[in-house]
Design a protein around this nucleic acid. Structure first.
Length: 305
DNA sequence: AAATGCTGCAACCGCAATGCA
DNA sequence: TTGCATTGCGGTTGCAGCATT
């Protein structure tokens, strides 16, 4: 017999949320924060399970959600990130401020997949459908606006660090990448990245903030040289040179969040800005987050029990 | 106008990861 | 170390609304 969900077990409400339920949840979180999700429904007077409340908040009620249709830049970024990360929707969404993993996933399944197939590209592998093994570059995946004109493979070497940074830029004919296996296709191994030296980069750029699931656009690279491991360039701070290459590219479309404002006084201060980093220090659970290196993990909010 | 099919989105399910006693 | 509670995540489902017949 199938295992019943927590909502079934406790005979809790399921299905679509009513406006009244939304109000209750919003009001509760505005006043007290959510704390432990499991206690939210009881405290907020809802006949829902904590999991359902969390999902509703994250996917629908959060005040920083962008909503509306995806821009061309967002679409290109999703395709690009998917080629690197696969179905890691939360990681992809983390690079799209105001978008949720669910939203990105739905957009992918309902729109992008179809679009790629129409262009003869396998959305799973990002290779041409007809010739899955071909290494032919396929520019059709990205719009012209998304491509960053540089030629990483032919750039003369000056400084090793500069070389490495150059490698983080996307070449015009960057191939569509299958990055879901541990194999790194030859064409994906950018020469300037093969001796990727995080130490040197750190020295060049300053200390790395740690942000495993940042909501900010920090740095993006098309490379899959590190297919099976973490993507260190995704953790670079917003002020560093590397992220500048690409963050600048997406400037305007990708707003930085000031998520903290919503809770730093129960929404009272409240307007997101488009400036580069958190403005001034803020404190969460006794942890001071300061200056431009700060990156806020929206999902991490759930950890202030 | 009614029936049917299609699409997109919100929500659920179940498993993995994590934290804690 | 173990077991439980909680959170996070990706896959899947259900349904409302729209399009087509």
């Amino acid at each position: 017999m199938a295992k019943q969900s927590c909502c079934h077990k406790k005979r809790l409400r399921r299905g679509l949320w009513s406006p009244e339920e939304d109000d209750k949840l919003m009001n509760h979180i505005a006043k007290y924060g959510h704390g432990c999700w499991s206690s939210v429904p009881k405290l907020a007077g809802l006949e829902r399970c904590g999991k359902s409340c969390r999902l509703r908040w994250i996917n629908y009620l959060r005040p920083d959600l962008k909503r509306g249709t995806f821009s061309q830049e967002e679409e290109d970024l999703i395709i690009h990130l998917h080629s690197m990360l696969g179905n890691k929707w939360s990681q992809i969404a983390a690079q799209l401020p105001g978008r949720t993993d669910n939203e990105v996933k739905n957009f992918w399944n309902s729109y992008i997949k179809k679009k790629l197939r129409e262009r003869g590209i396998d959305p799973a592998t990002h290779k041409p459908l007809a010739e899955a093994s071909s290494t032919t570059a396929c520019r059709a995946v990205f719009s012209d606006a998304e491509l960053i004109p540089t030629t990483a493979t032919t750039t003369p070497v000056q400084d090793p660090v500069e070389q490495m940074l150059d490698g983080l830029k996307m070449p015009m004919d960057w191939p569509v990448a299958p990055v879901h296996s541990n194999e790194v296709p030859e064409y994906y191994q950018v020469p300037s990245l093969q001796a990727f030296d995080m130490g040197a980069l750190q020295q060049h750029c300053g200390a790395f903030p740690s942000a495993s699931s940042s909501s900010t656009v920090t740095g993006l690279s098309p490379t899959a040289a590190d297919a099976g491991a973490n993507l260190p360039w995704l953790e670079l701070g917003p002020t560093d040179t590397v992220s500048g290459h690409i963050a600048d590219h997406y400037a305007g479309a990708l707003d930085e969040l000031r998520w903290s404002d919503y809770f730093d006084g129960a929404f009272q201060a409240a307007a997101p800005t488009s400036q580069g980093a958190l403005q001034g220090p803020c404190v969460y659970d006794g942890v001071k987050v300061d200056d431009g290196a700060a990156q806020f993990d929206v999902h991490g909010l759930s950890n202030w029990c």
